[in-house]
Simulated assay, not measured.
Amino acid sequence: MAPHQSDAIDAPADVKSYSIDHDWDMLSGDDMGNNIGFKTNTKSGSAGLSHKNMTFVNEVRAFISSFQGSNGDNSKLISNFIKQMSAYGINVTVN
C-alpha cells in the first residue's frame, strides 16, 4: 500500500499492490506500476497541508476495512472501497 510518491516504490510482480493518490496532489503520484491505483478528490486546506499524511486518513481507513472484507477478491475490495469513500463525499477512480 503506497499513499505517497508511489513512483519511488517498485511493486513486486507476484504481489497484490495498491496505491492511493489525490488527483490535485502532484507529489502523491500514481506511477507504481503493476498495481491497482486509486485516485481520490480529497482536499485539505492549503497546498502546504495537502500532501501531509493526515489527508490520507479516510482513504487508508476505508482501504483497510475493504481489504479485510474482500477475502482476496479485488473486485469486492474495489467496490467496497468506492462505497466507503462515497460515504465521506469523496469520489474515487481506479486505474
Rank of each mutant, 00 (worst) to 15 (best):
L49Y: 03
L49S: 01
L49R: 04
L49F: 06
L49E: 03
L49D: 05
L49T: 02
S50Y: 09
S50L: 14
S50H: 12
S50G: 11
S50K: 09
S50I: 10
H51V: 09
H51R: 09
H51W: 10
H51K: 07
N53D: 14
N53K: 15
M54Y: 15
M54H: 14
M54I: 13
M54S: 15
T55L: 01
T55D: 04
T55G: 02
T55W: 03
F56T: 11
F56N: 10
F56D: 14
F56K: 11
F56W: 11
F56V: 13
V57S: 14
V57L: 15
V57K: 13
V57H: 12
N58T: 13
N58P: 11
N58R: 11
N58A: 12
N58G: 13
E59A: 10
E59S: 12
E59V: 10
V60A: 12
V60M: 14
V60G: 15
R61V: 12
R61W: 11
R61P: 12
R61D: 13
R61L: 14
R61H: 14
A62G: 13
A62C: 13
A62Q: 12
A62Y: 11
I64N: 07
I64P: 06
S65E: 14
S65V: 13
S65R: 12
S65N: 09
S66T: 04
S66Y: 01
S66H: 00
S66W: 00
F67A: 08
F67M: 04
F67Y: 07
F67L: 07
Q68F: 02
Q68P: 01
Q68A: 08
Q68H: 01
Q68N: 07
Q68V: 03
G69Y: 03
S70P: 05
S70H: 04
S70T: 06
S70N: 08
S70G: 06
N71A: 07
N71V: 08
N71D: 10
N71M: 04
N71I: 01
N71F: 07
G72T: 03
G72D: 04
G72E: 08
G72W: 02
G72F: 05
G72C: 05
D73M: 00
D73Y: 03
D73N: 01
D73G: 00
D73E: 03
N74C: 06
N74P: 04
S75F: 00
S75Y: 02
S75N: 05
K76N: 08
K76G: 04
K76T: 05
L77S: 02
L77N: 00
L77F: 03
L77A: 00
L77T: 01
L77Q: 02
I78D: 04
I78A: 04
